[in-house]
Design a protein around this nucleic acid. Structure first.
Length: 338
DNA sequence: CGTATTTGACCTGCGC
DNA sequence: GCGCAGGTCAAATACG
């Protein structure tokens, strides 16, 4: 979770259920769950104060109070996050001072190649020696739309030296969490790049298979991607990126085919993953222009908003309240009502 | 026919 | 040394 959350007006949990149209609905396109509002908003008119209206108003007030409560909770979470981040950076700083050894020096690490190489790999293909990650530093800003994406890079600050060296020599690893339709069985994460699937495996800790992709836009691109559904919430796809692209982002025309260029281009481009976020494409790229970075930032915010919406929709009490409010309103406005 | 995907087999690292 | 699990290869298959 980024600290800016607390200061983002767009993240206010004020749902404005039942209020007149806002006029700037597109500010949070990802928050799909409030779509039913349209039913209410477009026919909203001042109503006479009958008991149902009173009940609705009461409910509205109750939900507003709940919203405020949630906002406060969010603020508290952000504060705690910042506190923890401060503690963490302190620990890293002290650890770095005490640790001594330079963690990130892949070239010094006895040619710890990005991955163990099979004996056959260097036979005839003899590709140019795998270029070290263009930017050895590990920018953590890449895509961590929320605390969810806080991953591997922070886990190797302590523990066995060997493991640590191994971890540090890995290509840059980042994770991306994407909301996908549960009925969508494909493991395609639209991030703007072209990916070629080269394997799929069922892992022990997750019944959902994990798909392995390579960047197919540039043959020499070292980036790999693993995509797997979240074990706990299979509406969430977890994309793990390893390495950095050594090329720019494909032009939009090519982005459409994403991880399924060529053959699967026959499918409707959006039929497989309507909720995927191309937004993170630029962020995932590693090499982004200022404009792309700005776009990515905006898109990341949208993604965060969607994640928050997901969290809310998973809350039974929130759902119940929403359903109660909406159903009451719909029944009231229904022409077949007696 | 060319290219991408699927999928079983194989390779490698790691823990016991 | 052995077995397990993750990752990758490559032949078979599917599709435009």
């Amino acid at each position: 979770m980024d600290p800016w959350i607390g200061s983002q007006p767009s993240l206010c949990l004020d749902l404005r259920v039942g209020l007149p149209p806002l006029g700037h609905r597109q500010a949070t396109p990802g928050v799909a769950m409030v779509k039913p509002k349209v039913l209410v908003e477009e026919t909203f008119q001042p109503l006479k104060k009958d008991p149902e209206v009173v009940a609705l108003e009461t409910e509205l007030q109750r939900m507003s109070a709940e919203n405020r409560q949630l906002s406060e909770m969010l603020t508290a979470v952000v504060a705690k996050y910042e506190e923890l981040q401060t503690q963490f950076s302190d620990m890293v700083t002290s650890g770095a001072n005490a640790g001594g050894g330079n963690p990130s020096s892949p070239s010094e690490g006895g040619s710890v190649s990005p991955s163990r190489k099979r004996k056959s790999e260097s036979l005839d293909d003899s590709p140019p020696p795998p270029p070290p990650p263009p930017q050895p530093q590990h920018p953590q800003h890449l895509h961590m739309p929320s605390g969810l994406a806080f991953a591997d890079q922070t886990e190797c600050t302590s523990g066995e030296p060997c493991k640590r060296i191994r971890e540090e020599c890995k290509p840059k690893i980042s994770k991306l969490y994407v909301h996908a339709d549960p009925s969508d069985l494909s493991l395609v994460v639209k991030d703007g790049y072209q990916w070629r699937k080269y394997g799929q495996k069922v892992t022990k800790d997750n019944p959902c298979p994990r798909a392995y992709f390579r960047c197919s836009f540039a043959p020499a691109c070292p980036v790999k991607k693993k995509v797997q559904r979240n074990a706990e919430d299979n509406t969430i796809l977890v994309a793990t990126y390893e390495g950095e692209h050594n090329h720019g982002q494909p032009p939009p025309a090519q982005q459409n085919s994403d991880g399924s260029s060529g053959k699967s281009a026959g499918k409707p481009p959006h039929a497989t993953a309507p909720h995927h976020h191309q937004e993170h494409a630029a962020a995932a790229a590693g090499a982004v222009t200022g404009e792309q970075a700005a776009a990515a930032s905006e898109l990341i915010r949208r993604n965060l908003a969607e994640q928050m919406a997901m969290t809310l929709t998973k809350d039974p009490s929130f759902k119940a309240a929403l359903v109660t409010a909406l159903s009451g309103r719909i029944l009231e406005l229904s022409p077949t009502k007696d």
